[in-house]
Amino acid sequence: MKAILKIEHLSKNFYLHEQQKLISSCRNISFELDKGSFIGIVGTSGAGKSTVLRCIYRTYLATEGHVWYNSLAYGPVDLVNADERQIINLRRAEIGYVSQFLAILPRTTAFRHVTDAALEAGFSQAEAEKRAAQMLDYFRLRRDLWGLYPATFSGGEKLRLNLAHAMVKAPRLLLLDEPTASLDPDTKLLVRDLLLKLKNEGTSMLGIFHDLEFMEGLCDRVYNLSQGSFTE
């Protein structure tokens, strides 16, 4: 398998028992992501963009289809029906997910949030702290914020912390769910530069963006998702 990620005929329906309603989100989606490339997904709200990403991350159980991921640890794995423990281990070490929301335990400082992610990926304490510091510097989070609880951060700071948290374990595959929504143009540019740098370092990425300008020069391919199906 050459591609790092190969999606075959992915469909996702939600069945709501209480309302007895079947909601179809995305239908028959197939594409491939080559190693080190960047695919952008665009589409109107509710088109099923996030659903595709979440099916890949296994937050959602796909109704049909396969998501083949070429992992270092286990070789090719179908993320749709892989063992849960495998998914957990892959999330720790290989697959990163960034959304615009920050999920963090209360009473955890920004620095520890990032250090913990590195520890989870298996780095030693000293190494984890070193990497966390590098990452936070890389994403230009002011050093006087490191010891604070991120609940008080601005949107842009939270986002950059989110990216640092995902990137500190150096994932091979990064899933980006509208990471630049609600950011000012300057911060967007900063994030764009950083993503470009990551791409050049060999990280494969799949991202959802609303901003076509942002994607120019960054994405190798752009897919448009409308009414649940894909066009290139």
Partner: peptide, 21 residues
Amino acid sequence: RGLTDQILDDPQHPYTQQLVH
């Protein structure tokens, strides 16, 4: 049973859906 975020974001069983909702 499943991954925590899957159970909470994409619950399958009627009771789990009711719980999450």
